[in-house]
């Protein structure tokens, strides 16, 4: 077995001798460890699994998915910079998690510790109601909330999560008060919705896609309507400036060579252009975005400003 050290050394020698262009085509020279900081079966897992086969098509190497769950992702993120930094280890990163978690408490990592190189999609926030709900439009729901402040209950996945952020921001935008009830994961949140325990759910378009039969999406927080739901208006169309959701990207450990990072950004950018990949992602309700390595900093700064405002509303920061 070749030791990682030798591989790095060999890689370094090659790139020195033959210049970056050749090194790029040599990279990746072995299978990629793709760490998912959650358990299997969630959206982070599913979207990574969809990337897998296109990664092999492009590079000839496998992207091997490894789960390292715990602490809502914090366990894996806080230990990630100890991983081998030769470009063959990457980790899935999620917004708002990697911004809100360090803001809220000491989780063993800072947002800037994560060396993100690409953000490839997001699950737009969405309001879902059961198919037999009396609320036909978003206005119905807002009116009900105005009549009896706090009585409208929303299920959602976790506290300080994308769902929670969306609920807080929308309450502010619409000037209403609703009750957010956190559940363990999207599955539990949608179960609560279907059983009628809550009035509505702050979920994602992906949840609506998987549960089309017995739920109805009232509005979606994407920039334009989703191809899968041409009849569902965006929040912006309805006059609420709400756009966002759970963004997913990838990071490399601190100290990874810049060329490797750029090459990874290119590879995953290429996957994002594959028409078949695009179709399969849309089919599941995702919304693709392209934030390559050079644009990641600006993108994160924008998001951070947004989330800090919400964090103030949560009383997480002053």
């Amino acid at each position: 077995m070749k030791s990682p050290f030798m591989t790095v050394l060999a890689g370094a020698v090659t790139s020195l001798a033959m210049g970056t262009a050749v090194a790029q085509s040599d990279f990746p020279s072995k299978d990629l460890s793709y760490i998912i900081p959650f358990g299997p079966g969630g959206e982070s897992d599913i979207s990574a699994r969809l990337q897998q086969e296109y990664f092999t098509d492009i590079t000839g190497q496998e992207a091997v998915i490894e789960y390292k769950p715990g602490g809502g992702g914090a366990v894996a993120w806080s230990q990630f910079n100890d991983m081998p930094a030769d470009g063959h280890t990457i980790i899935g990163t999620n917004l708002p998690h990697i911004i809100l978690q360090p803001l809220a408490k000491d989780v063993g990592f800072e947002t800037d510790d994560l060396n993100n190189f690409y953000f490839f999609h997001y699950s737009p926030d969405a309001i879902l109601v059961p198919a037999d709900s009396p609320y036909q439009t978003l206005e119905d729901l807002v009116e009900a909330a105005e009549e009896a402040p706090g009585s409208i209950t929303f299920s959602g996945s976790g506290t300080y999560s994308a769902n929670h952020v969306a609920q807080t921001r929308f309450d502010e935008l619409a000037g209403i008060t609703t009750t957010y009830i956190p559940y363990k994961g999207t599955g539990a949140a949608v179960t609560a919705l279907k059983s009628g325990e809550v009035s509505a759910e702050w979920g994602y378009s992906t949840v609506a896609a998987n549960h089309q039969d017995d739920t109805r999406m009232l509005a979606i927080a994407s920039s334009e309507r989703h191809p899968l739901f041409p009849d569902v208006p965006t929040f912006q169309e309805l006059g609420y400036d709400l756009e966002g959701g759970a963004y997913r990207g990838m990071a490399v450990p601190e100290g990874t060579p810049e060329e490797a990072k750029q090459r990874l950004s290119e590879i995953f950018g290429e996957i994002n252009q594959d028409p078949e990949f695009v179709e399969r992602m849309q089919e599941l309700g995702f919304f693709l975005v392209d934030v390559p390595a050079d644009e990641v900093d600006d993108f994160l700064a924008e998001r951070r400003a947004e989330y800090e405002e919400v964090a103030r509303a949560f009383d997480l920061i002053d």
């Binding site: 914090a74 366990v75 806080s78 000491d106 989780v107 990592f109 976790g158 956190p182 363990k184």
Partner: peptide
């Protein structure tokens, strides 16, 4: 560790080892 509901970090005594 990190509470799913409420988001508190409980009884970790500042150690990231117990977060999970």
């Amino acid at each position: 560790g990190v509470a799913v509901v409420g988001g508190d970090v409980r009884y970790t005594f500042g150690s990231s080892l117990l977060l999970g």
